[in-house]
Amino acid sequence: MMEEEKELLVLTDVSLITCIVQRGLADAVVTAATEAGAQGGTVYFARGYGIRERLGTLGVAIEAEKEVVLIVVSDEQADLVFERIYLSAKLSTPGMGMMFVSRLEKAATYIPKEVIANIRTQGRKERVDDR
């Protein structure tokens, strides 16, 4: 029996968008990101500190419990997804949350076989065109 060769497939030129919003608003962020082309998102709970204390009595309206959303996107998509989330989560309003993008060295996940085949065919074609 032939043993299947182990192959490590990694994605490069990818970014991680981290968005911190008030509890209950993460679903809207994930929806906005998916509509803009992201494949999905991961959400976890956290507790925030800072803006509530600075806003004094107005800070009561801000939820201390936060949701953190992680979204992995290609570098090409990052600006669009970032903008859509910014608008849908109303991040220009003080206390609504914050968001940042970090460049990833690399990422790995399941890549469907047909996508891999497409990329390989494209790569071969480009090499032939370059000659």
Binding site: L8, L16, T42, V72, L104, A108, T109, Y110
Partner: peptide, 23 residues
């Protein structure tokens, strides 16, 4: 470590998650 996790957690298979590395 990245490679170890990739094969140990079988990241390359469907529904097994995502692995990221940043500086």
């Amino acid at each position: 470590v990245f490679e170890f996790i990739y094969f140990e957690a079988r990241i390359g298979e469907d529904h097994n998650g995502l692995l990221l590395m940043e500086k």
